[in-house]
């Protein structure tokens, strides 16, 4: 797919990100950015730190070192107990509401219908009018192809339908960036395509997306850029057609050989 012009501003960036769990260093200095409209596929074997990277961007995890910038706003930090925490909770909530997250296990709120899931945050976080949010939610559900499921509870939907509802929930916030954390890994094989189709349509709309995935075809055909993580470091980073045809990193070559 045609990459966005390099003159477009950065929608999201991290610089020299470090994160460890106890003694385990998961991220060892990651720098990565995405321009507006850019789709970045993040590949790597399990334990390479790719999910942690996404979770650091919307601050579900607190990175011990490095910067996180969403739009033109950099996360402010303050020191605490030998480490650091975000200085301003309101800023964290603001940034999160600008970053849409789609989880591997959907994480829809089980006590609310599909429609209620979609309007929950626009109404209660952004304080928008309910009627307006409902109308928009209906349009979003139609877009992801589950308009007829609006009054169903999540438990009564298939995995693919739940994930599409979760995507609609993320879109309802008008996010500047969408983060996908292995969105198809928990799905039955026959349900994967319906979710990938929705994601492809979003990419074609010019959405900024960071996608952690194992779907090589998606990375090659839809993503503009591919980033390969290995043991907490970026091993390969380049336009997708280039990294797949002529990978520079030996590890990425091995990864491709094993995976396909």
């Amino acid at each position: 797919m045609l990459a966005p012009s390099p003159t477009r501003p950065e929608a999201v960036a991290v610089r020299d990100l470090h994160k460890h769990f106890g003694r385990l260093e998961v991220l060892r200095g990651i720098s990565l950015s995405a321009r507006e409209g850019e789709v970045v596929a993040i590949l790597g074997s399990s334990g390479s730190g790719k999910s942690t990277l996404l979770r650091c961007i919307n601050l579900l995890e607190v990175p011990e070192g490095g910067e996180v910038v969403v739009g033109d706003e950099a996360v402010a930090w303050r020191a605490r107990r030998g480490g650091r925490v975000p200085a301003d909770r309101a800023q964290v909530d603001r940034i999160r509401s600008r970053v849409g997250m789609v989880f591997q296990s959907f994480n829809l709120w089980s006590h609310r219908t599909v429609l209620e899931n979609v309007i929950e945050a626009p109404v209660h976080v952004q304080g928008r009018k309910k009627a307006e949010c409902v109308a928009e939610a209906e349009a979003l559900l139609a877009k992801v192809g589950i308009a007829d499921k609006r009054d169903h509870y999540p438990a009564h939907l298939s995995g693919g339908q739940q994930q599409r509802a979760a995507i609609a929930r993320a879109l309802a916030m008008h996010p500047r960036v969408l983060l996908f954390d292995e969105p198809t890994s928990a799905l039955d094989p026959e349900r994967v395509a319906e979710v990938l189709r929705v994601m492809r349509a979003l990419a074609e709309e010019g959405r900024t997306m960071l996608v952690v995935t194992h779907e090589m075809a998606f990375a090659r055909d839809v993503a503009h850029r591919v980033v390969f993580l290995h043991e907490g470091r970026i091993e390969e980073d380049g336009p997708s057609e280039q990294v797949f045809s002529a990978p520079r990193s030996e590890r990425f070559r091995q990864f491709l050989a094993r995976g396909e």
Binding site: R94, R96, S105, N107, L108, E120, V125, M173
Partner: peptide, 29 residues
């Protein structure tokens, strides 16, 4: 289900709102 709480954090709900809109109804059930 921790995932549902995490989803609430991810959309920018603050602690009180998460408690009221997600945790309390799920725990009550």
């Amino acid at each position: 289900d921790r995932g549902q709480v995490e989803a609430a954090r991810a959309v920018g709900m603050h602690r009180g709102l998460i408690l009221r809109r997600v945790v309390a109804p799920l725990v009550a059930r």
